[in-house]
Design a protein around this nucleic acid. Structure first.
Lengths: 213, 213
DNA sequence: ATACAAATACGATACGGAAAGGATCGTTAA
DNA sequence: TTAACGATCCTTTCCGTATCGTATTTGTAT
């Protein structure tokens, strides 16, 4: 996983290894080929051979850097998504959460949906891929979410007795559920609904049926 | 998908087709071989060839009945799980929901976890499999859940303004999330936590910090 | 009833193709 | 000198199809 890119930062103390360095152009060419193949033909139709043809990079070179096609596509995914879907600060922290949920759903609906589906699908059979996906995609987002949730608790926008992990699961589980199982659209309205349901709870609040946004 | 079994119920009006009927023994032998292979070696290591060897049934016969190994494993899954995880009626309908969530999580933790992971993983690349899984596994359970939720609403255990589908997603999304992503255990405590969070909501209830089960 | 034909499943085998993944080796860039 | 690159070859595995003789059922004629 995580192939070492040639270290282009020339820190004078960090000595370059002796031989011919790995080609950065080759690296990018492969990732771009992987993206176009997975978008046009799908993950299953992609093979290291087809990648080699499309990118013009020898198959052996690809195998020198990645153990399998899933690892390539994973790197391609992060190459394309860059810093990813971040939380934008809002006056109310819960708004920040809702907006981020909408952003994630939008990514799921768009070109990243098939990529994440493919990676998670493959991860069901490849523990290393699963771990890498958790470390590189899931965990950072969960950490960011926890910070926002803590803020929200501090501002008394959320209960003080909630568990952070469970809260994240309750909010985001539905999004991944719909992405992976497809039992319903990932529409904007759905995300708002899900957010409202989890925020407000399912139990009757009081005698006066007050519905909160 | 769904290969026709020889109709052993001899309804006198339902005429048997002319030729040699399909062997029920062969059918069961294949499903059992599929189960043992997927449990022992995993879905990826399973192939139609290995299935043929293990079951003693010719490869051609398997291909006559199923289009690919995923379809075999899907039938094997339903063969093993039988009627599946049902809702048991309780005095309070919400208890029935919580108990069913625990049962599902237990199945995920047990021998059905790998099976469902494999089927859903494969479904990310096979739209027909995905649809079949939704139709045969997801949809019936959601329908059953809806009935219970409607009951609960009728008994004023749940708010009257909730959306059934969104409610189900909020409750069960986290379970599938943990099964498929593995970001945390599917423990009994977790299920109770998730249930409590979704039921009670995340927003502060009142000035008195009353925590409800 | 018995014999035979038609229909269909089964088993065995062979085949072509795709892809994985490794090995070799001459070439190229530091 | 060192290590990456590209080209090529190779074995293995599996897929999915095709062929063909055998076995088991139903329908029909005797």
């Amino acid at each position: 996983m995580n192939p070492r890119l040639p270290d282009l930062r020339d820190r004078s103390d960090a000595r370059r290894p002796k031989g011919r360095p790995r080609s950065h152009e080759a690296h990018v060419a492969i990732l771009k080929a992987a993206l176009s193949e997975v978008h046009e033909l799908g993950f299953r139709a992609l093979s290291i051979d087809s990648l080699s043809v499309k990118s013009g990079i020898a198959k052996t070179t690809i195998y020198r850097r990645w153990p399998n096609k899933a690892a390539v596509v994973m790197d391609a995914f992060f190459y394309e998504i860059g810093p990813g879907i971040a939380f934008v600060p809002c006056e109310k922290s819960v708004d920040s959460i809702q907006i981020q949920m909408q952003a994630l759903a939008k990514a799921f609906r768009g070109k990243f949906g098939p990529l994440i589906k493919a990676l998670l699908g493959e991860a069901q059979f490849d523990p290393e891929l699963a771990e890498a996906f958790r470390d590189r995609w899931i965990a950072p987002r969960r950490e960011a979410a926890k910070a926002v949730i803590r803020d929200a608790i501090g501002k008394e926008e959320l209960r003080s007795d909630i568990d952070l992990d469970t809260t994240i699961d309750a909010l985001y589980g539905g999004l991944y559920y719909r992405l992976l199982i497809g039992a319903g659209p990932l529409s904007q309205a759905y995300v708002d609904d899900l957010f409202r349901h989890v925020m407000g709870g399912l139990r009757p609040r009081s005698r006066k049926g007050s519905r909160q946004a």
